[in-house]
């Protein structure tokens, strides 16, 4: 083992000597990453379309175009728009995976991750920062959804503690989705591939649930899939906690009858299963 070389003191035409380097740890570095991502949004506000225009369009489409013909079984006087809103919020959170995957893939593609990895900073700051930024991004969507909902007649009826718990469940689900995003973003070789994979999986998954229509009206096999879909548990939990017509068909499957706990369980399970896969894919992509 050789000793560090003494006397390396380059000048590059600068008035300063070599500056002191004091890496500041994961949290501070992650915040630098978050600020970077916020600047991206500032420079390209259209990046927010996925959590603003798009879900608002879904709300309007379903509330006013399809809503009239969708039966929320077993309950009388159901306000479909109120019933719909938790569904759209669940879908918006599921797309957090999309946001992470696209952003991460872009960074990997452009080589800026190599730049970060050549710095004496914590290895995990890039991912932690990306995840925080994506949660923030999706949360903007949730706020936009809530405001849109209030305008069209959505109300929170379950008391403040339950209301907060519902938002926390949404964030927990978003956290799980982020790992899927890191996995897909690291494994795919191009942004187009990420788009392809995410569109063909996330869209059907968010529709094959109780987001827009009650599973009770679906054919039996489809209904089973929809009722066991993690998004359905989340959405049902939100409807219960916000009191947005949560009544279920008597034959509803077990996960929907214990939606709050099941939703939390799904988020933990997805994280535990996908996080190692995601980290492995990311490491594979970056270390060779």
């Amino acid at each position: 083992m050789s000793t560090p070389t003494a006397g390396l003191q380059p000048g590059i035409g600068l008035t300063t000597d070599r500056p002191e380097i004091h890496p500041r740890g994961v949290l501070a570095e992650s915040l630098v990453m978050v600020r970077r991502n916020l600047r991206h949004i500032k420079r390209q506000p259209e990046m927010l379309m996925d959590v603003t225009i798009q879900p608002i369009m879904f709300v309007l489409l379903f509330a006013y175009v399809f809503g009239g013909s969708i039966q929320i079984g077993g309950q009388s006087g159901v306000n479909y728009r109120e019933w719909l809103l938790p569904g759209i919020m669940g879908q918006t959170m599921a797309f957090a995976s999309f946001i992470v995957a696209i952003g991460l893939n872009n960074d990997l593609d452009k080589g800026i991750i190599d730049r970060f990895r050549s710095l004496p900073m914590s290895r995990s700051s890039v991912l932690v920062g990306r995840s925080l930024a994506a949660l923030l991004h999706s949360s903007i969507g949730i706020v936009v959804m809530a405001l849109t909902g209030l305008v069209i007649g959505w109300r929170i009826g379950g008391g403040p503690a339950n209301a907060v718990l519902a938002f926390l469940l949404l964030l927990a689900f978003g956290f799980a989705m982020i790992w899927i995003g890191i996995w897909v973003g690291s494994a795919m070789r191009s942004v187009e591939a990420v788009n392809g994979v995410m569109f063909t999986t996330m869209f059907p998954i968010t529709f094959l649930a109780n987001t827009f229509a009650p599973p009770a009206n679906m054919p039996t096999w489809l209904r089973t899939i929809a009722e066991w879909n993690p998004i359905s548990a989340l959405v049902q939990a939100l409807r219960e906690l916000w009191d947005n017509y949560p009544d279920l068909a008597p034959s509803a499957a077990w996960p929907l009858r214990h939606a709050v706990w099941v939703s939390l369980g799904w988020s933990v399970l997805i994280t535990v299963v996908v996080a190692p896969l995601a980290l492995r894919a990311y490491r594979r992509r970056t270390t060779d």
């Binding site: 380097i21 890496p23 630098v32 420079r43 390209q44 452009k110 080589g111 800026i112 730049r115």
Partner: peptide, 26 residues
Amino acid sequence: GQAASVDELLTGRENLRMIGELYGIK
């Protein structure tokens, strides 16, 4: 590196300042 690894959506100055922050330079 081979691909100019700077952030396209930041300004030149913001890029350098970000690197400085990540080094933990005052």
